[in-house]
Design a protein around this nucleic acid. Structure first.
Lengths: 209, 209
DNA sequence: TGTCGTATACTCGTCTGCGAGTACTCGTGA
DNA sequence: TCACGAGTACTCGCAGACGAGTATACGACA
């Protein structure tokens, strides 16, 4: 898997708006913001200009003109090139067609949940569950609000998001159930380990893969 | 949400192994690799030493000794400090207890799937589905292999992974179903747009949020 | 005995992401 | 009318992530 010349997701967002019409960087940011794309990824001003410059360097964007409008700072307007369009399409193909290797951060957290005692684990998981439920609510509301305004095709990512968040909620609920009822085997040993701080050292060498 | 002084996930992994016993960086990498943690996040040598240095700078690790063993390059052995242990616990608490804002890359891809035609979208989604199924198989196999070797508490992240991957698979399958049967409304307009390249411009101004 | 490959253990330099700062302009209200 | 805050449009410089390179030691094989 060869890596993209501009790897930041912000680059993808920039290409996606540049596809519609030529713009200057600040305007791209404004459009993205207006579209609500910044909800998940707040615009980083420093990155924006770097990314645009890199996209230009690799021939995905080209400068069209430099306008001095009023007394404002000079604005350089960029247009997407055919190469840029191809890159964008290929990028989307990759995103849709391949599963990313990097696990979600929650998975990493889970793999180390042992360090918290069972009680802390339970309270943190409850906290997460509340956030998940809240997130589903928000997304559902957004979906209702947007549905009359645009075709469903442009809303599938919200549907996906809801489905995934609900699935995670179900899993967390199930796991919490096991923890609170004590159904998870070894929970006593866990509590003892956490209180005394001593490692059950028959676990030290479990692996050779 | 104040940001962590060492933000890289590699830092978390380093702390987690340093918790067991003092080690030198290369050894940490070796242990991580042996534990299979590198499957999801291949060790980046450049980052390892930067991250360890930063952890030391912020008082989470401290150098214990510098051994010249045989003719090998000098190895500096690091031990975790109480502050490091606290940071580690707090980090895990955060990972478990809060939902991350950054959406998975697939969600971003989905939100731009319109750029591919329906046919390409379908074939890419099929490709993803195959990878998802394969991943579930692998994880399930790993689970069976590891279950006799360690308590379930240390395997919950694999169970979570399987549950999430299956959920995604179900969603993708459902969406594919809609696409292939033509149940998704507007699929003809979509195909026309993709073939002619012309934007149905009643979509240009759908937002004010 | 020589040498070839692999494992050990880093070092260095680049490239990129990003926050914080800058500077100018326009509208609004007192 | 003029001060103030919000919006516009960037610039700068640091710090962190990473790849590729380096240098030595050791075992195996011929």
């Amino acid at each position: 898997m060869k890596k993209r010349k501009v790897a930041s997701m912000l680059g993808l967002a920039v290409l996606s708006v540049a596809l519609e019409r030529a713009m200057h960087p600040y305007e791209m940011a404004a459009v993205l913001k207006q579209r609500g794309k910044d909800a998940d990824m707040p615009i980083k001003w420093g990155s924006l200009y770097t990314v645009v410059a890199n996209l230009e360097k690799h021939g995905f964007l080209e400068a069209v003109e430099s306008v001095k409008d009023g007394g404002r700072p000079e604005r350089t307007v960029y247009r997407i090139t055919p190469a840029g369009r191809a890159e964008f399409e290929d990028w989307v193909r990759e995103l849709v067609g391949t599963v990313e290797k990097e696990p979600p951060r929650f998975r990493s957290g889970l793999s180390m949940i042992g360090i918290l005692g069972p009680d802390q684990a339970i309270s943190r998981l409850r906290q997460r569950l509340a956030q998940l439920d809240e997130h589903v609510e928000e997304q559902r509301a957004a979906l209702e609000r947007l549905r009359p305004l645009m075709p469903r095709l442009f809303l599938v990512e919200v549907e996906y998001d809801i489905a995934m968040t609900e699935a995670e909620g179900r899993w967390v609920r199930g796991f919490l159930e096991e923890l609170t009822t004590g159904a998870l085997p070894g929970i006593d040993a866990w509590r003892r380990f956490h209180e005394t701080g001593e490692f059950p050292d028959d676990l030290g060498e479990f692996v050779e893969r």
